[in-house]
Computed example of a mutant assay.
Amino acid sequence: MFTSIRFKIILLTVIPIALIYLLIFGFGIYQLQLHLRADVEDEMRRLTQQYAGIFSGF
């Protein structure tokens, strides 16, 4: 089957670069999710300790 030079350039350069960018973006989103989850857990821990301190005062 005859393929044009334009198709070969797209196939061999643009698609691999796009895949690399998608992998980097996906890894960044994953790291962001981990940090956000840790931040929420820290905030919830701080809030429960604050409420425990308020209730232990009664």
Rank of each mutant, 00 (worst) to 15 (best):
T3A: 07
M44F: 11
F2T: 12
T3C: 09
G26L: 03
I24L: 06
F55G: 07
L11S: 15
T13R: 08
F58Y: 12
L22Y: 09
Y30N: 04
Y21R: 07
T13E: 05
I29T: 12
I29G: 04
G26P: 01
T48G: 08
F27I: 06
T3V: 12
Y21G: 10
T13W: 05
I15M: 00
F58A: 00
Y51C: 07
R45E: 15
V14Y: 12
H35G: 10
L32H: 07
Y21T: 14
L12T: 13
L47V: 13
L23D: 00
T3R: 09
I5N: 10
I24C: 02
R6I: 06
H35N: 15
A18L: 06
I20T: 12
F2Y: 14
D42Y: 01
F58H: 10
A18C: 05
A52C: 06
A52D: 14
T13V: 04
Y51I: 15
I20L: 12
P16G: 04
D39Q: 09
S4Y: 01
T48F: 00
H35W: 14
L34W: 07
F25M: 01
Y21N: 03
I29S: 08
A52W: 02
F2M: 03
F55L: 13
I17E: 00
G53W: 06
G26S: 00
R6G: 06
E41R: 11
M44S: 12
E41C: 03
S56W: 08
Y30I: 08
L34Q: 08
T3S: 11
A52Y: 08
H35E: 14
L19F: 00
L36M: 12
V14M: 09
I20F: 06
V14I: 15
